[in-house]
Design a binder for these strands. Structure first.
Lengths: 223, 223
DNA sequence: CGCTCCCTCGCATCTTTATGCGATTTTAAC
DNA sequence: GTTAAAATCGCATAAAGATGCGAGGGAGCG
């Protein structure tokens, strides 16, 4: 099974890349394998946006730097129309901001353009199988995101258990009277607790307290 | 240069793993290369916490499942004492919650125990070079974090640019009058915008709006 | 025992928000 | 060239929130 002809079960791949040379190279590379098949390719986001969906690719290789509409925005719009399609971003270097914007736009993988062909093929398979291929360098950028809150806010730790409990309810948008109903205490008691919370967090409004709370702890997880 | 003897410039690796068999296997494997060198190994977190720092490892392979203090907590405490050391978590399968807890505790890599030896060695080098090796499956878990609102909050997208702008200010805890000063518009205009925001988000208080906003979009990035 | 902290409750007052019902202008879309 | 949406402003009223002052009961500590 080394025939370069398109296998029926090969992964349908689309390419969006403005450099003619690189684009042709990718097409050629994909054509030489049986696991992938280039079904279409575009030199800019505009043409990809209008014509790419017709080809029903399963995986899209997307250059992040495109003239006009850039790769991130292109992914955002395409992902909206084709939620099941997997996008791999290609970039010349790991631009931190764009990594996140791409991931948030719906991309699943993030590779450097100088990735060798075999690794790129692996990545296409991985992303097609539900993984998120990315270079360790780029992964580190992502990982650092989860580490940037070293000591979950010193002020927050000064709150008493009851105060933390109420702060959580505040952050969920409950009215004072709803907190009253929820905790079975009087309105004035709620006021007193919140007053203390404000003192300890050095704020003067509930939204500021909530902002400080949500901004300085693991709003990510349950515990 | 195939001598199993410790090279001077080899990466100093520590191992924390409660399964004697696996631990011995890792030590043996690392001993057979010139790029790494096992400098110590422990069967539980407690002994690692007290003795590991003395050996000054550069990379630590940490089993996530340990009796008593678990691997995540162990990393948290060790990372506190040795910020420059890189930790790679080892797990039998990709447990979603623990992935994040590990990353937040300070781990940089996350691999499955069944990772083949060459790949594990690569990972040690990568983490030592500032990367974050992880399997594509685990990377996907991390990536999904940035996408966890598949259609990034339908309601939020209905907001006009100005409304989004004001919502951001609201979420930072600014008073109406502060928003007035910030945007150079009248108090009543701010009211009108916020009224529309409430309508579109189906809420009736600023905190509820902020909660909805922070809970369903990119609180991560600038724009 | 006195001290401190937490949780509870009350009253009074002032500020901030929420919302109903308007309006005009500009710009983009059909 | 009408329609629609966005951004701007105004007035009025009612609800919610912020804050000052005070106070009693219980848990824990030196």
């Amino acid at each position: 099974m080394n025939a370069p002809t398109a296998a029926v079960n090969s992964i349908r791949v689309a390419i969006v890349e403005d450099d003619d040379c690189i684009r042709a190279g990718l097409v050629r590379m994909l054509s030489r394998t049986s696991i992938c098949r280039p079904v279409c390719n575009f030199a800019n986001a505009e043409s990809a946006l209008s014509a790419l969906p017709e080809y029903k690719p399963e995986v899209v290789l997307m250059d992040i730097n495109l003239p006009g509409i850039d790769g991130v925005e292109c992914v955002r719009r395409l992902k909206d129309k084709m939620p099941g399609v997997q996008f791999i971003m290609l970039t010349v270097y790991g631009d931190s901001d764009r990594v996140f914007h791409s991931l948030m736009a719906g991309a699943s993988g993030y590779l450097l353009k100088r990735t060798p062909s075999p690794a790129l093929l692996d990545a296409i398979c991985e992303v097609h199988a539900g993984g998120s291929p990315m270079t360790p360098q780029i992964a580190r950028r992502v990982v650092q995101f989860f580490q940037k809150v070293p000591d979950r806010s010193p002020q927050l730790e000064k709150l008493s258990p009851r105060e933390k409990e109420i702060l959580v309810l505040l952050s969920e948008g409950l009215l004072y009277k709803e907190i009253v109903a929820h905790l079975g205490i009087s309105l004035d008691t709620v006021r007193t607790h919140i007053r203390k919370i404000y003192e300890k967090l050095h704020v003067h409004s509930r939204t500021a307290a909530v902002a400080k709370y949500l901004d300085s702890s693991d709003r990510f997880l349950s515990g």
